[in-house]
Design a protein around this nucleic acid. Structure first.
Length: 105
DNA sequence: TCCGTGACTTTAT
DNA sequence: CATAAAGCCACGG
């Protein structure tokens, strides 16, 4: 079976440094395959093994039900949270080239 | 093969 | 700026 997708997604999530965040859609683009929903599905399944709280929705708000946990962890890491939502423009993480799957430098 | 579901995104009101 | 509807992607029944 092809769990390559899952591997790539988890790998990227693990690569997100403290104090930074990324979105489902961005991860989907980085992997270059599937879509935001698919990324969410992966995290729903294997999220426990990675810093899932650094992955939030495109509107700067964590997924439903994770708000409390995610926001408190993000705040701990120094992520600027404003009224329950993260300022993506300031902390949106960009992966290092070598973290990407099949993209040459 | 068709339908429903889900840690989503974008566009329109 | 907040809420609602439609679109999108892979998967399982």
């Amino acid at each position: 079976m092809d769990d390559t997708y899952t591997e790539e997604v988890l790998r990227l999530v693990e690569a997100v440094p403290p104090g930074a965040v990324t979105t489902y859609g961005d991860l989907a683009e980085m992997v270059g395959r599937g879509g935001p929903r698919q990324v969410g599905a992966v995290l729903a399944r294997h999220g426990a093994a990675v810093p899932w709280w650094r992955v939030i929705r495109a509107d700067g708000r964590p997924a439903d039900g994770l708000g409390e946990r995610a926001l408190s962890r993000l705040a701990e890491e120094g992520v600027p949270v404003h009224d329950g939502r993260v300022r993506l423009a300031s902390v949106r993480w960009r992966p290092a080239p070598e973290s990407l799957p099949g993209r040459p430098v």
